[in-house]
Design a protein around this nucleic acid. Structure first.
Length: 863
RNA sequence: GGCCACUUGGCUCAGUUGGUUAGAGCGUUGCAUUCACAUUGCAAAGGUCACUGGUUCAAAUCCAGUAGUGGCUACCA
């Protein structure tokens, strides 16, 4: 029999174990069937990994994601399900391109234009490849049991085919259209971005009031005001009653008098400013909407670089930032400036990836129409399809309050602009020749066709992820049939809109099915002060560092326990260190058990209990098993882990193993318990459990594919009488230990004790040896009067110390008894509460009363 | 402005459908080290469950309101 080393050294085992798992092929469900560890007809369980961006390395958030998903996957695999977890990475178009552009400037002082499109793309691909390699290595370090044979990339050929196929389908269905619409232009990134890629920043801004003919108008953006020839007010505003809708007036303005048109529309807030504003349809979403409504002219004022166009005359060519003050100055000189509010705070739209200030522009772009009925899908619009599957519970969101957020987002959803003016990404599958436009999966035949130079929003390809990874567009693909819809989508709540919603949109439309049955949303991993982890704050905890220092299992536990669905969690190195201690504890528990197991065996049935302690531990194990499994299937991974930990550390290590030292002869029970806890812990701590398993049971069988030990009892079928008996033994020991500590008796010193336990005397007598050993007694006497438990001390009890201690205890219990007496004598309580509750209360009262009597007797004896 | 979540001992959090004297870990205090583990064990101190009101025999738990914190969202130019 091999003996385990004194402390667990993760480094000695982890890489080798992972390599073995991977080489065995058992991460692949097909291999599991081939090798007979999974029945071919068993249920399918599938997760598609949210693909990390190839912009760098994995952070703790990714680590948490991998840990949570791996728990589910390993549980289901052991459960016997055909379990598939598909890995992959995301090209993250804008983010990756922006990162490479930044590096190019920093390292070589060059822009992408210096390199040209083909050369620049080579650089991006090289960078993406390196990031990819780092990421998959990190995922392996985390112990993630991903089926690498199915690895995918959002920009590889298969995914590109899926993208082109879906684009064509949507175009044919009239869901994708090209049009001049107002979009979010990022002058810094030189591309259009979607509404979701905007980050709003609150900034202090000057708010001006200008004279505009007979009106006073307010604005924070005088630089856009050149073309303002519409003045808008609320139709019910009495102050402006005399002006009629569409009435024309001539007003003096920045460069010359202009003919302005009065528009009356209820969108105007009468309370704000003067209740009058002018509009700039080309550079404001709201103004654009108004202009569409009344068929107003739209004029471009600002170009794509953020410079003023010739319409600004003397300001033409100036950056809007520098022109602003000059324009105000000019209006002031002309006597048109009324007032300036210096403390106005407004929200500036900035591009998430580049930080550029977004300038709305009217441009010709490609859009997905979210409000057009789709014939093939019962004339439902994409919006309706997205709403329906969540409303009718085909998709369950955990935690469920995110459903509200989801619906709210859909309600406010506008057509989705999918074209981007960046180089890295899926090129739009559209070709032009003169006036002709061709949309197809493949390029059109013949010469002279030019492909659209734009690329697709990265979320277009991510939206297909659950099915593009499983064989689409081949609708007969085995994987698509077997593993779609996927069982669970586990991801961060911060990408509910970006991604989860878009997968639902794409899948309900393309396949007429849901992409997943359950969405489990995790929170963000923050530092110990609750701040986001960021390089600039220097508070980033790197998963690889923690793995090197404390081991993967400890790192995983720190991310799994104390982490509840939808809530952010705080992580500190101390927490990880704490779980390293537990990992080592499990190791040492196994080490001790191994020393007491005659012949380690797998596939053992529950052994017969010989003593009360045996019964107690076996029953505790069963109860724990059924609670743990119940929690896992309900996505309460933290609770399941905590119950396991409680059992392992408190029940097993602190009590049962100590008792085993006294009672002896526990080989079979220990073997059975070890078998069980290694399996139960495996999804949480795959490395240490597999290491122990192979040390103990040999290397022939991998714990990873052992059968999950479900409880043979259903919950609630446990009789608790014997369990309670053991708790009495435990209480006696605890009480004696407590008294010893209070009397400051040396721990090693053996003393005598007297016990007055009434009808439970037999239980205590049967377990006398245990009590003597664990409480360090040389003699235990049973008496019929006096204190419940009293210690024989060498000298007399120190009355001075003992009296106040007893008095305090009596006072406390008196309070408790009084409370119970009031409760039990309360007629309303007795009448209304369930019988069982009333009986329980009465029982508690009589117990407390007898305890009180004993204490009082003890106090009297002292005097 | 709207919506959502959160508020429990010094810190991090449990507390499942209302029913023992509200639990755990870390930290703190005291004691212990040839016996699986000091990456340990034993014992202890520490909480008016944010506040106010309501429902109920019974509220940390349900309802309403208030305050604070965090987040999402919106067309106040």
């Amino acid at each position: 029999m091999t003996e385990l080393s004194k402390a667990y050294e993760p480094k000695q085992y982890e890489d080798a174990i992972y390599k073995k798992w991977e080489e065995s092929g058992l991460f692949n469900p097909d291999v599991c069937v081939e090798k007979g560890v999974t029945e071919p007809k068993s249920e399918h369980f599938s997760i598609v990994l949210p693909p990390p961006n190839v912009t760098g390395t994995l952070h703790m958030g990714h680590a948490a994601m991998l840990a949570i998903e791996d728990v589910m996957v390993r549980y289901h695999r052991m459960k016997g399900d055909r379990t598939l977890w598909v890995p992959g990475t995301d090209h993250a178009a804008i983010a990756t391109q922006a990162k490479v552009e930044k590096l190019l400037i920093e390292n070589e002082g060059k822009t992408k234009y210096d390199l040209g499109r083909p050369e620049f793309l080579k650089r991006v691909e090289k960078f993406a490849q390196e990031s990819h390699d780092t990421i998959v290595n990190q995922a392996r370090k985390m112990g993630a049991s991903l089926d690498w044979s199915r690895e995918a990339y959002t920009l590889d050929e298969k995914r590109n085919l899926a993208v082109r196929t879906v684009f064509k389908k949507m175009y044919d269905d009239g869901l994708i259209y090209r049009g001049h619409r107002i979009v979010n232009w990022d002058p810094k990134g030189q591309t259009v971005i979607s509404d979701d890629e905007i980050v709003y920043e609150e900034r202090k801004n000057k708010f001006y009031t200008f004279k505009y003919g007979p009106f006073e108008i307010g604005t924070a953006r005088p630089e856009t005001k050149f073309g303002d020839k519409y003045v808008v007010m609320h139709p019910d505003d009495k102050r402006y009653k005399k002006w009629k809708h569409m009435q024309k007036i001539t007003v003096e303005w920045i460069n010359a008098p202009i003919e302005a048109t009065v528009i009356k529309d209820p969108m105007i807030d009468m309370e704000f400013g003067t209740g009058v504003m002018t509009i700039t349809p080309w550079h404001s979403h709201e103004d654009f909407a108004l202009a569409e409504k009344y068929k107003l002219d739209k004029e471009q004022i600002i170009d794509k670089e953020g410079k003023l166009l010739p319409i600004a005359q003397e300001f033409s060519g100036m950056k809007i930032t520098e022109a602003k003050d000059k324009i105000v100055e000019k209006l002031k000189t002309k006597g048109l400036l009324v007032s300036v509010d210096e403390n106005y705070i407004n929200r500036i739209a900035t591009a998430e990836r580049t930080g550029g200030v977004v300038e709305p522009q009217v441009m010709e772009q490609w859009f997905v129409n979210v409000n057009k009925p789709v014939k093939e899908r019962g004339n439902k619009t994409l919006k309706e399809l997205m709403q329906d599957v969540v409303k009718n519970k085909k998709i369950e969101i955990v935690p469920d309050h995110f459903e509200k957020t989801y619906f709210h987002w859909i309600d406010n959803l506008r057509d989705w602009c999918i074209s981007r003016q960046i180089w890295f990404g899926h090129q739009i599958p559209v070709w032009y020749k003169g006036e002709e436009v061709y949309v197809g999966v493949d390029a059109p035949a013949g010469d002279g066709w030019q492909q659209d130079s734009d690329t697709l929003d990265t979320w277009f390809s991510s939206g297909l992820w659950t099915f593009s990874t499983l064989g689409y567009p081949d609708l007969k693909a085995e994987d698509l049939k077997n593993y779609h819809p996927t069982s669970v989508m586990e991801t961060g709540y911060d990408i509910l809109f970006f991604w989860v919603a878009r997968m639902i949109l794409m899948t309900t439309y393309v396949l007429g099915d849901v992409p997943f049955k359950t969405v489990y949303l995790h929170g963000l991993v923050r530092d110990e002060q609750g701040r986001k982890m960021s390089k600039s704050l220097g508070n980033v905890i790197n998963p690889l560092d923690m793995i090197a220092k404390y081991g993967t299992d400890a790192t995983r536990l720190s991310l799994l326990l104390g982490n509840t669905p939808g809530n952010d969690m705080k992580l500190s190195e101390e927490k990880i260190a704490g779980f390293r201690n537990f990992t080592n504890k499990l190791w040492n528990i196994s080490r001790f058990m191994l020393l007491n197991i005659e012949e380690p065996k797998i596939d053992v049935k529950e052994p017969k209990a010989k003593t009360l302690a045996d019964e107690w531990i076996l029953e505790s194990l069963e109860i724990m098993k059924s609670l743990v499994e119940g929690s896992i299937v309900k996505y309460n991974f933290a609770i399941a882990g905590e119950m396991l930990k409680e059992f392992t550390w408190n029940h097993l290590a602190d009590w049962y193993l100590e008792i085993a030292k006294v009672e002896g002869g526990k080989s079979e029970i220990l073997n059975y318990i070890l078998n069980n806890i290694l399996k139960l812990w495996h999804p949480y701590m795959p490395f240490v459990t597999e290491s122990i398993w192979q040390e103990v049971y040999g290397e022939g069988r991998s714990l990873m594919v052992e059968k999950w030990p479900s409880s043979v009892h259903s919950l609630g079928s446990f009789g608790d009488e014997r369990n309670v008996d053991f708790l009495i033994v435990k209480e006696v020991i605890e009480k004696i230990r407590s008294l010893r500590a209070e009397y400051k008796i040396e721990p090693a010193k053996k003393i005598g004790a007297k016990i007055n336990i009434g009808k439970k005397e037999k239980v205590v007598k049967d377990n006398e040896d245990i009590i003597k050993a664990l409480a360090r007694l040389e003699k235990l006497e049973f008496v019929e009067s006096g204190a419940e438990i009293a210690l024989d001390l060498a000298g007399a009890v120190d009355v001075e110390k003992e009296k106040p201690r007893l008095e305090k205890e009596i006072a406390e219990i008196k309070k408790y008894v009084t409370g119970l007496e009031n409760k039990v004598s309360n007629k309303e309580f007795v009448d209304n509460a369930p019988k069982a509750v009333v009986e329980k209360e009465q029982e508690k009262l009589s117990e407390a009363q007898s305890k009180l009597a004993k204490l009082q007797e003890q106090l009297a004896n002292l005097k």
